[in-house]
Design a protein around this nucleic acid. Sequence first.
DNA 1: TTCACCTGTCAGTCTCAACTTACACATGAA
DNA 2: TTCATGTGTAAGTTGAGACTGACAGGTGAA
Lengths: 121, 121
Amino acid sequence: MQAMNSEELLAFLAAVGHAQRLRIITELATGSLYVSELARRLGVSRPLLYMHLERLEKAGLVIGRLELSDDGKALKYFELAPFDVQLNVDTILTAARLDEADAQQDRSGEAGKHSPKGTPQ
Amino acid sequence: MQAMNSEELLAFLAAVGHAQRLRIITELATGSLYVSELARRLGVSRPLLYMHLERLEKAGLVIGRLELSDDGKALKYFELAPFDVQLNVDTILTAARLDEADAQQDRSGEAGKHSPKGTPQ
DNA sequence: TTCACCTGTCAGTCTCAACTTACACATGAA
DNA sequence: TTCATGTGTAAGTTGAGACTGACAGGTGAA
């Protein structure tokens, strides 16, 4: 997995650092599921699960896609995205260094090359 | 770094998944510092910093020790503890499996062999 | 004795993520 | 048309963590 800046690293850590979301990941590890089914398995309300899945998706941990079932119903399936982050002091220092590099680019008015979503349109 | 159960993993992730605490780690990476000095560098109130440091210490990310300076003043120094956690689906599944093993032990009334701090006295 | 440092802790406030309840809107089957 | 299924979202409440300000206590130096 490529190096992340602080913002991305924090999004990732905050997303995975929550008991419910760890359970979601555990459940999705066996295969993709649609939201209502997942909610039933975890004993969690659907809107709440939505929030967690959104968070996980933004951090790039899961991927959602709308599918039509055989009987024509729309089902929102979620599957795990592959992820692998080494977490140690170096990772954190690298993230901090990337922040400075990003800030440097911003100051010099360069077209956002690194920043994946921070680019203002 | 040895395998963690969910509780330990969550404590770790929640501790490191916070902007201020990332900055604390970054600052401590250059060497150990005492609380007041660290607070000044980060521009953070001392009680607040205390809270963060406590959190980091409980998760095993930093170590604090009281030292006497040359002129007899007590200084609370904090230094980084070495840590290295690989974060991927396997890590999380392993944590979940460890939870079950722990629960099993508890049920069979075994003297807490694994649980590092959950042992009731 | 006053000042400039430091540690340690308490009692609050504030803010935001987490969570609940309720809605609107689809589909296919009975 | 009603029921059981699903998606999607818009309120609201709550609770925990984050944060502030103020205190008590210690030291050595002026």
